[in-house]
Amino acid sequence: MPQLPGMLVGLGVTAKTFFKTVFPDGPTKPPAPSKGAHTVQYPHEKEAPPARARGVIALHHDNCTACMLCARECPDWCIYIEGHKELAPPRRAGGKPRQKNKLDRFDIDFALCMYCGICVDVCPFDALFWSPEFEFSEMKIADMLHDKGRLADWMHTVPEYPAYEAGAEVKIKKLPSPSS
């Protein structure tokens, strides 16, 4: 019976967890399981996901050049982009007008998206960002398609990049501000 001590320790572990959950403040205080439990009672209190959590994708559409890289790399083909060319005023006086891609449509179908993050990684112009926001369920599946405006609205929920560890290369990325 060499297993016996280990089995008793196991009983101790569950018993200890039980008392830690029911009496988080020690056995003399009244039981408070909602404080002792590690879980969050979700609809009543909102969980705070870590800043880098993958909740929803935000679009900073001033940065987007409609280059279609994200749409092409998306494994689910759930990004829909349409755009047209526009003439922009020349940089210097007397110069030729520049050509610019104007974004007409940028939709992500979150009913199809598998939150792989490839689109965010692949965007060369810092136009897509992860936001930890997760409350965007809908009654109708068609409403899971977020258009340009809705994706842009998520921008304000995107947290600032956390500082690098001490001694790391100092090249802190800055989020584009909505005005830039």
């Binding site: 039980f18 830690k20 909602s34 002792g36 439990a37 879980t39």
Partner: peptide
């Protein structure tokens, strides 16, 4: 209840 508490959760509430 006891199973939930032993797993540090609340169970049906």
């Amino acid at each position: 209840k006891m199973m939930s508490f032993m797993q540090s959760r609340l169970g049906p509430m």
